[in-house]
Amino acid sequence: MSNPKKPHVTVMRSQLSRARGLGSGQAGVGHWWAERASAVALVPLSGWFVIQVFRLAGASQPEVAKWGARPFNTTMMLSLVILTFYHTQLGLQVIIDDYVHGKAHLPAGLLMKGIVFLLGLFGAVSVLKLALAGSSRSTIAAR
């Protein structure tokens, strides 16, 4: 609020006349649906991951590498990492929309998206490195 003590009118138009003719909000309910769809996808993926944590609790690095080299595990881990950070980005965007107003809103959202994007990419690269390094090492050993 620019001046909380002295009320003043900056726009002499009603809210309806300001909104009329602008068309739809463009984005519509896309963000809301993306949040729900990623949440539904994360339900089975999280369940799978909990089982894997039980399988890997106390495991050594070679055991984890062997686990991560299986194509099915790689696929599931990649899906989990990508969807987790996608869902994170959607959720944090709502929090920024709620609490950050004015000029800081856009840079806050972009900064958050940049950080979450890099984290997600880091996770995806790690999963792929574990998968591909594991398989290539075993081929070298076989030769």
Binding site: Q61, V64, A65, G68, M77, V81, L119, F122, G123, S126, V127, K129, L130, A133
Partner: peptide, 10 residues
């Protein structure tokens, strides 16, 4: 992510 990246590193 530290866990999975450390496993990938060695």
């Amino acid at each position: 992510l530290c866990w999975i990246s450390a496993a990938a590193k060695g």
